[in-house]
Nucleic acid binder design. Structure first.
Lengths: 143, 143
DNA sequence: GGCTTATCAACAATCGTTGTTGATTAGCAG
DNA sequence: CTGCTAATCAACAACGATTGTTGATAAGCC
């Protein structure tokens, strides 16, 4: 993802205003590799600026996504996660806690010839599901 | 998926009762390859039995899933889809209308050695995203 | 037919997310 | 620095998908 300074410039260029709320979110997202949910970003943001609203977090994430600066992921774990990494990559998803981690690899996958069923395929994502380190440990005790 | 008769027997064996509502849902799911949503099943069911409730559809789908007879899919398209096919397979997803189709293929994908980041991976799903036949035609006109 | 308990339909509630609104403030001209 | 105007804000209501609750009903078994 671009740096907070670059995003600030990009926003201004496009006629968007850059508020303290947005600058903070730029900071929280920059270099963030844990695919935060809107809620978790809101929690982090609230720590610094208690008056910020969840709505503002969603709004800014939505703006960033429509500019192509972040990627919204829905792994079927209840809430969307936001990925500052917009390169092609894949994901490891914890079935228990919903944790998501990036996986960089080129699997060179494509739909076998004649099997696309009328679809024009734009991209292929691989999702590896399983248990993360933390949830694995929990499993040893009660199940 | 098992036949309605087999499911009826399975349910009874497990102490579940088999109501007309459930038998109808067994029928609607059997041989169904379009990954219906709960709503679309509800619509189909209502045509035959106008008094059936959406709650009953969800309840029965949930029962079937916990018995491993169907698979719940969340492709990030708003609502869950239910797949009577529990074999390992992949999916084609329409970015516009949410349509989902099965794709049988063995891609032999695995997490590259040492890159699992603490995860114990149970399975890998490939999701091909693009546009389906119907939505492609719409695109030619206004996009 | 009668008993017991799972299931039913209706309804309210939940969760993540988006729409609405009047007040505030960023960006810019003077 | 002052003032203008539109974008943004926080608060709140609303939304769609799903799940919880409840009293009435009916499946399964005697």
């Amino acid at each position: 993802m671009k740096t907070p300074a670059e995003l600030t410039e990009l926003f201004r260029t496009r006629g968007f205003k850059v508020t303290p709320q947005r600058q903070m979110l730029f900071r929280l997202l920059h270099g963030n590799d844990v695919h935060p949910t809107a809620e978790s970003l809101y929690a982090a943001a609230s720590a610094e600026m208690p008056t910020i609203s969840l709505r503002t977090v969603y709004q800014t994430l939505s703006d960033l996504e429509s500019m192509g600066e972040i990627q919204q992921l829905d792994m079927g774990t209840g809430s969307s996660r936001f990925d500052p990494n917009t390169d092609v990559h894949h994901h490891l998803v914890c079935e228990r806690c919903g944790k998501v981690r990036d996986l960089y690899a080129d699997f060179a996958i494509s739909v076998p010839r004649g099997r696309a069923q009328g679809f024009t395929v734009k991209n292929a994502e691989v999702v590896f599901r399983g248990l993360c380190d933390t949830c694995k440990q929990g499993d040893e005790h009660h199940g």
